[in-house]
């Protein structure tokens, strides 16, 4: 698996898109710091960008890489390699190169601005960790979609729909439910609702850490009340890990049963 990971990773490192992605984050970091002049405020703005953008890039890159490397996969399938190691290797190659673009792109401007001397360092690290989780989750979901759909256009369509659903539509439906059932106790429902969406979960996680009650919203407040800050952090981390593990297991399961 490590060999496949290595080849996929270097293949992506040579591609133009990794640099575009890296450059975008670099620019974003520099511009935000320039405009805000304050590390903590820049972190909050970044959160809003990362939470929507990282899943989108992860999904698109994942689907695109799978379909583009179809020939490569077929070549590998005839070699004495396990199927799970071929696809997990490719998955990790994509996810790691995206993560690297994210961490380096945002990290470099913040480090130069004096991150290590400021007390925003933990908030910023948490932001990068959440970004990494979101990359791992959405790339894995994208690989799942691509493995289940031979048709490229369909695969892309489903991937975009998935992102749209989790990033935007889900919140809408969630809010509607809360308004509709406002006469009932909704604590448990909103807790579960937050956990079932990795994007909401990441947002709550970061806001819990930043401790900005004004931005927490209803679910965040319940989260905090229910779990307390530190236990809430742990629970949301565990949920994020579950969100990575389940799609990865399905990649292994699905790839073992697929015909090429």
């Amino acid at each position: 698996m490590l060999k496949i990971l290595k080849y996929s990773f270097f293949d992506l490192m040579r591609s133009r898109w990794s640099y575009v992605y890296f450059g975008f984050y670099l620019l974003l970091g520099v511009v935000l710091l320039f405009l805000n002049n304050d590390l903590s405020k820049a972190v909050i703005t970044l959160m809003n960008v990362i939470i929507v953008l990282v899943p989108l890039i992860g999904t698109i890159f994942g689907v695109m890489y799978y379909y583009n490397s179809k020939e490569f996969s077929e070549l590998l399938l005839a070699q004495p390699l396990k199927r799970s190691s071929i696809f997990l290797g490719q998955y990790l190659g994509v996810a790691l190169s995206l993560t690297m673009s994210l961490i380096l792109g945002l990290g470099i401007p913040f480090v130069f601005y004096g991150l290590f001397k400021s007390n925003a360092i933990w908030d910023f690290s948490l932001l990068l960790i959440t970004g990494t989780f979101l990359t791992l989750i959405f790339t894995a979901l994208a690989f799942n979609i691509a493995l289940s759909n031979e048709n490229k256009i369909k695969g892309f369509g489903y991937a975009i729909l998935l992102w749209l659903f989790l990033a935007i539509i889900y919140d809408g439906i969630f809010l509607m439910t809360l308004i509709f059932f406002e006469d009932y106790p909704l604590d448990k429902l909103s807790l579960v609702g937050t956990m079932l969406n990795p994007i909401d979960l990441s947002r709550t996680l970061i806001l819990l850490k930043l401790d900005i009650s004004a931005l927490l919203g209803y679910t965040g407040a319940i989260f905090k009340q229910f779990f307390g800050t530190s236990f809430g952090l742990i629970v949301s981390f565990i949920m994020l890990i579950v969100w990575v593990v389940l799609p990865v297991l399905r990649i292994m399961f699905k790839s073992k049963r697929k015909d090429f």
């Binding site: 020939e71 070549l75 005839a78 390699l81 199927r83």
Partner: peptide
């Protein structure tokens, strides 16, 4: 099983290789 493929050399019908290598 995947290790048995050590004993097989396979030449596919259409030579589709990763194009950027």
């Amino acid at each position: 099983n995947s290790s048995y493929r050590h004993n097989i050399d396979y030449m596919p019908q259409i030579a589709n290789f990763p194009s950027n290598l």
